[in-house]
Amino acid sequence: MVEQGLIRAAQSGDRDALITLLREIEQHVYRTAYYILNNEQDALDASQEALIRVYTKINSYEEKAQFKTWVQRIVTNICIDKFRRNKPTVSIDEHDLVFEDRQNVEKEVMTGYLAQDIQEAINHLPDHHRTVIVLRYVQDLSYNEIADCLNLPLNTVKSYLFRARQQLQNMLQEHQKGGVSG
């Protein structure tokens, strides 16, 4: 998604190339930050910090890794640090507040979950599970890319991903059941 020449130019000191590079990746950076943090302002802060870090650390990037993987690692690390600092716990009340419109929820069961519900469910995943889900679905990374990005073993990535899906499904099913029952 990013030309190798542009990366090299940026690494050689071409500031314009580096800025262009940042513009190409800022959307991906922001989406990852947004889904991991589930908060626009936090996502902006984290994204800016990630971009600045890319800007300053561009020369530390090595081509043996994919650039997108390298960037996502930076973003996820920043988000995990930020998440740990800002969100020690998740309140159940907030979770309940998300599902207000019961009627719509019932209809969604047939076609799928509301995006908002899914986001809410994702937000309740453990950090690494959520991160794996985001990388898998938001950034469309493979097991190996996720493993590289998070510096985790491939099996661990699979485990996190599978478990995250089960958790999400459980949460959504419970919500759906609760919604039906309620």
Binding site: A43, Q48, Y55, G112, Y137
Partner: peptide
Amino acid sequence: KLLSRDLEDLPPVTMPFSLVDSILPQL
């Protein structure tokens, strides 16, 4: 499969403004 599809269909959130422009002074 439905869950996975929904995850894949997560809305592509976009930034309210250009992050790069906002950080140019810092750069």
